[in-house]
Design a protein around this nucleic acid. Structure first.
Lengths: 221, 221
DNA sequence: GATTGATGTGACTACCCAGTCATATTATGG
DNA sequence: CCATAATATGACTGGGTAGTCACATCAATC
């Protein structure tokens, strides 16, 4: 948790500091991200950082929580019950996700780059916890659909949930592998990852949905 | 490329050195892996490593090539044409993969851990190149099946290939997330990752195949 | 205006690493 | 048996880092 000193800061300075660190962590994996270099570019003293946060991990944790909260403002309002089927809901998660990206490029970059940190032993615990929650979320969704009789019931729910999670991520990764998006470049330019690429993304999303739908929907025999 | 000095080494010493480094890189991501600590545990001088290899990356590249070659002895012999459908082939990739793991735990560990290195900027180039090849391989497979009229043709081949790749990896990851396997633990104990877990793995493989089959096979209308 | 508590500072510590190189040891073969 | 080439060595260089702490500065309250 950030110390009081940080919260007492004028909003403007707080944001400047937050943004600088978001940028650093978005570009470099946790262990390579250098507080020293950020404070230099910010023109503040190294010691100040430790006036605001307990340590590097505390700072990192704070950034994750901040960004997650912002993203939640977008996708958190979506409710399954407002959609006819799971796939409409699934699709909206992406369209809202893009909106989040376009309006909060830095936060979006940072959250994206989190996946690159899965290995850094220093943040493994933090990352694993996040992951467990997300996967549990997908598992819940799967369970719900199976109970509604909309998803097939011959596959363990754990597997269905995991496949939803993994293929959801695969969409973004495919966009990157095929060169449609280039997150690292976008960060440097300070532009949203999906700027001008929304149509391509949604097209890919629709392809994945076509596939997942046939894979997971209960056969209407 | 390793220098002549390395090749001139007695096979026994060569293997001892190789294994020690495999272990180190399997446990720690590239940038955290410490040559200093390995040479200490090996009881050789730091300078010797640089008698054998150009630098850390050269050593790492050598290890990748060695391990890939060993794994290829297992999965490389499998040919699509010896199977009735793609899924028999796909399944065999796993059963052979497990055989490789059981008979070469260290090499298997190392190759597994490669995925954790995707972020280390120092090896990004190397890793991306590998990935591009693997994905291209899956794309080829997908293309072949579509041409045979066995896979659906309403989805871009790039997407089908990528989904095959991603879901293939998802199988291993799910085994880890659900706690059936614990690679890091296994390394420390020097035991194969899948020891005693082969049945669970193949069960999961079969579930994934059930799903992918319905997702990708041409509908037999 | 003075006293006190909160905030800012940056040189410094303690640590780690890859890679070097002059020197020492060991093998080779003439 | 000696000379030369090949190999082994480890202290050292130069570079990086997170985190600390005694001190300076600023703000607020009495």
């Amino acid at each position: 948790m950030p110390k009081d000193t940080f919260h007492n800061l004028p909003e403007e300075k707080k944001e400047k500091i937050t943004n600088a660190f978001l940028r650093e962590f978005a570009i470099h994996p946790y262990d390579k991200a250098s507080l020293s270099s950020v404070v230099k570019s910010l023109g503040i003293a190294k010691g100040s950082v430790y006036q605001y946060f307990d340590d590097k991990l505390d700072l990192f944790t704070y950034l994750i929580e901040e960004c997650s909260a912002v993203k939640m403002k977008y996708v958190g309002q979506l409710k399954r019950e407002n959609f006819n089927d799971f796939w409409g809901y699934f699709r909206s998660l992406y369209s809202e996700g893009v909106k989040f990206d376009l309006e909060n490029p830095l936060e979006s970059h940072f959250l994206h780059s989190l996946a690159d940190n899965l290995n850094s032993p220093s943040v493994k615990g933090l990352y694993d916890e996040m992951l467990t929650n997300i996967i549990a979320g997908f598992e819940q969704m799967a369970k719900h659909e199976v109970e509604l009789g909309l998803f097939r019931d011959d596959i363990p729910i754990k597997t269905i949930g995991f496949i939803l999670y993994k293929n959801g991520r695969a969409i973004n990764e495919q966009m990157e592998v095929t060169g449609h998006i280039n997150p690292k470049e976008s960060i440097k330019k300070g532009k949203p990852v999906y700027e001008g690429k929304v149509d391509q993304l949604m097209e890919t999303v629709d392809n994945y949905i076509k596939i997942l739908q046939r894979a997971l929907d209960k056969e209407s025999t």
